[in-house]
Amino acid sequence: MIIGYTTGVYDLFHVGHLNLFKNARGMCDRLVVGVTVDELVQYKGKKALIPFEDRIELVRSCKYVDAAVPQYDMDKLAACKKLGATYLFVGDDWFGTDKWKKYEEEFVREGIHIVYFPYTKGISSTKITESLRNSHGLVLK
Rank of each mutant, 00 (worst) to 15 (best):
K76L: 11
M74Q: 10
Y64H: 05
D92R: 09
L31A: 07
R55K: 10
D54S: 07
T86L: 09
D75T: 03
V37R: 12
A85P: 03
Y119E: 12
F21A: 03
V15T: 12
R133G: 03
G111T: 06
K47W: 01
Q42V: 14
Y103G: 02
C28Q: 02
F117I: 09
K47M: 12
F95T: 03
V9E: 05
T97C: 04
L20D: 00
L31N: 02
H113I: 08
I56R: 06
L138T: 05
D11L: 04
I114H: 06
L58T: 15
V139L: 14
Y10W: 14
V139S: 14
T6N: 01
Y119D: 06
V32H: 05
D73W: 03
A68I: 10
Y119N: 13
P118G: 02
S124R: 08
K82S: 12
S135I: 06
Y103K: 13
Q42P: 01
L31T: 04
T6P: 00
I114G: 11
T120F: 10
K76E: 12
L12M: 14
Q42M: 13
L88I: 06
K141P: 05
L77G: 04
L88S: 08
I3E: 03
T129F: 05
C62S: 10
Y116P: 07
G34C: 10
T6Y: 00
N134R: 14
L18P: 00
H17Q: 06
G111A: 08
K141R: 13
Y72M: 11
T129G: 10
V65F: 04
P118W: 01
W100R: 04
I123A: 06
C80D: 10
H14C: 05
G111W: 10
V33Y: 07
T120Y: 12
K44N: 12
C80F: 04
T126I: 10
G111Q: 09
E57N: 11
K63L: 04
I50D: 10
F21N: 00
D54P: 00
V139P: 04
W94M: 09
G122C: 09
G16P: 07
L12D: 01
E104C: 06
G45H: 05
H14T: 02
K22W: 04
Q42L: 14
M74W: 11
L138C: 06
L58I: 15
N23W: 05
C28D: 02
V41G: 00
T126M: 08
V59P: 02
A24V: 11
D73H: 08
K81T: 03
R60D: 13
V15F: 13
